[in-house]
Simulated assay, not measured.
Amino acid sequence: MVRSTVTLPLQQGMRASQSHAHSASAPEESGNGSQMEYVERQLVQTAPRWPEGHHSCVALAFDLDGPTGDAMLNGSIWTNPSYFTLGSYGPWRALGRLLDMLNERRVPATFFVPAWVVENWPDQCAAIIAGGHEIAYHGYRHEAFWTLDRDGQREVMERSAEVFAKYLGMQPVGFRTPSGDWGPDTIRVLMEAGVRYSSSMRGDDRPYLLHAEGIAEPMVEIPGRWELDDYASLAYHRNPDFPASLDRIASYDTTLDNWRREFDGSHRDGLCLTTLFHPKVSGKPGRIALLERLIDHMHAQGDVWLATCRDVAQWWLDNNASGHAQEFSA
């Protein structure tokens, strides 16, 4: 097993084993003044300074999964045309609608795309790049990386790289793990494949750094939030039952209110918000209005840096975020 090191921002530096009482005593132990002074120092350390004086950051991101995933991996999707077309709706129909909406609002976005989708909808995927957006890795057929050994993960990354080069003439630098987790070898596999950032984990409200032993430059992690995953509120399909046990679609007003509240909290504290939206879920005629209103709400703040994940990751590296970090073995 490869020993990896995870670099977390300073506020994450307290070990989970520290007691509440010990944490509460930090101002007195620091010897640097009152509780209020301590809180003010922590806020300065916690809130990043974003480009051009922006107060917070949003990296709008979509997972263009198409019909890939478990049903494709086990072969059942080929006998389930309803489920296949549900997934195909994303690249075939919803994507163009989303790209038009993003263009109208002048918002860049990142699309994490399984390479199988690129093979089967190359023109639609090329339109993402033509629109000034970013495409990043998302497996070949949406494999669960935590179930694959190192060679299996390398095979997925190599095959994906070949597809992106053949159909789009480019190599992504970003990655979002399919199925929400990865194994102990994944960080090294990704770095060896030329990946410079991931948006896969949940460890903070800001980017942080991931290290692999023997590799000098770290990889940036731009953590996502399940609260900003449209599957949680809007996805539904009878057979297969996915998401499992979901038997209703949430109110659109409630869904939008939840998303705006998450943004409001992130913006208030000067943090980085990343979404896990899916064109086949939220790119439909009625639902895309939720995205329009969410983006308009962000624009109304006037000091939000809306950027691709690639640009956020590069800015984080360039500004030496590791200077406010501590390292832990993972």
Rank of each mutant, 00 (worst) to 15 (best):
R287N: 05
M36Q: 14
V117S: 10
H237Q: 11
T147G: 15
I77P: 01
G194C: 06
A244M: 12
H142P: 00
N239A: 13
L271N: 03
L290H: 04
A235Y: 02
R260I: 11
Y252Q: 10
E213G: 08
Q42S: 10
G286Q: 10
D185L: 15
S179N: 14
G66A: 11
F112V: 02
I288D: 10
R206P: 00
I187H: 11
C57E: 00
A61R: 02
Y38K: 04
E104P: 02
R41V: 07
E134P: 00
L273G: 01
Y83M: 13
S160Y: 01
Q124P: 01
Q18H: 15
Q35P: 07
H297G: 06
E29M: 13
I187C: 08
G53M: 09
S282P: 00
S88T: 09
A307V: 04
A126M: 06
L73P: 00
D303H: 10
W50E: 06
G323Q: 11
D247R: 13
R293D: 08
Q124D: 08
C57K: 00
M170V: 11
A307C: 06
A71C: 14
G174Q: 01
T46E: 15
A71V: 03
F164G: 06
L290Q: 09
T46Y: 07
P184H: 13
A47K: 07
L43D: 10
A136T: 02
P67C: 14
H299F: 04
P178R: 03
H278L: 05
Q42F: 09
A161G: 08
D257Q: 15
L102T: 00
R159S: 13
A109R: 00
R293Y: 08
A321G: 13
V156M: 03
F263W: 05
R150L: 14
M101N: 10
I222C: 11
L10N: 04
G302H: 00
G87Q: 02
E28L: 13
I135A: 08
L294S: 10
E292Q: 10
V304L: 13
D100P: 01
F328C: 13
A165F: 06
L43S: 14
S251D: 06
S251C: 08
D185Y: 12
E162K: 11
L256Q: 03
S245P: 03
F164E: 06
T85Y: 08
V39D: 11
Q45G: 09
T308Q: 04
T79K: 09
L10W: 07
A71Y: 01
D296K: 02
G96S: 12
G132P: 00
D70A: 06
